[in-house]
Design a protein around this nucleic acid. Sequence first.
DNA 1: ATATCTGCAAAGACTTTGCAACCGC
DNA 2: GCGGTTGCAAAGTCTTTGCAGATAT
Lengths: 156, 156
Amino acid sequence: MQDKLFQFQQYLHRTGLKATRQRELIVRAFFATTTHVSAESLYRRVGSRHPRIGLVTVYRTLKLLKDAGLAHERQFGDGRALFEHASSERHHDHIICTECGKITEFASVEIEALQEQVVRRLGFHIQYHKLELYGLCRDCSAGSGRGPGVQAIRVG
Amino acid sequence: MQDKLFQFQQYLHRTGLKATRQRELIVRAFFATTTHVSAESLYRRVGSRHPRIGLVTVYRTLKLLKDAGLAHERQFGDGRALFEHASSERHHDHIICTECGKITEFASVEIEALQEQVVRRLGFHIQYHKLELYGLCRDCSAGSGRGPGVQAIRVG
DNA sequence: ATATCTGCAAAGACTTTGCAACCGC
DNA sequence: GCGGTTGCAAAGTCTTTGCAGATAT
């Protein structure tokens, strides 16, 4: 987490931008999360300890994190963007529980290989993809929905 | 197309709603499209011949079409909803050209079977999924981008 | 010193809602 | 005529932008 902040500050320096107190606090808070955060929820996390930081600055810093390649922005169709850590790990997709909102990450090389096949047949040159599965997680199909969270599981 | 309108009017009657001139015009315009339309673009299509119809009514009618099971709403992550005809065909997914915006539909039973496997291993009970591939279509990779359109191709 | 940053307020894009007039049934 | 419907305007949500004062280098 400490080196993510360092990478961010490297990016700022490289680009001629400034390493401000607000940016450090927001970036720390971002990398302290384990789940997908919205701008609003990150704002609330930071604001609980540092009320003087504006939501606008959170938006702007998240944009910088994207530009620096340290964050990904996701749209899960509920009208707001969620941000997750960009890691050096392989690409992954998401399965979202429609009951409790829990987001689980997974990856399947078989699925991706098939996607490549399909794309080739249609004459497309693929750049990236987005696969979202929606359903009930184990807890919620058992009828005991808990709060949201994130797991990272590798399949295939 | 005529029977889609009939199905819609059946739905209205069944639900105690009224078959108005505006609704008929909007629904006709919707089923006259072959591509994915936004509320705004459907509004413009209708408005070109019938300027007295409001955008708000288009939104409300699209909602009715969804409720009637005759339209699906899609979010391709650019901040606005696109609507497509709900057909009795099998589920399909989309591949979107990042250059010209062309949306091509496809379906692959192999991909869906693999998704089922993954989901089962994670203990999820799947309800629906969303797969979007992004890349360059044949025309655009050849360097001759044309306007957007839609094709329907079945694979696998 | 000076170009960038911050935070507020305001604007923008998309969609929904309140309300008085309107119109199917 | 009653109750749903329309269209305008207004509000709501999420995100971006303009601007004057503040700050990093």
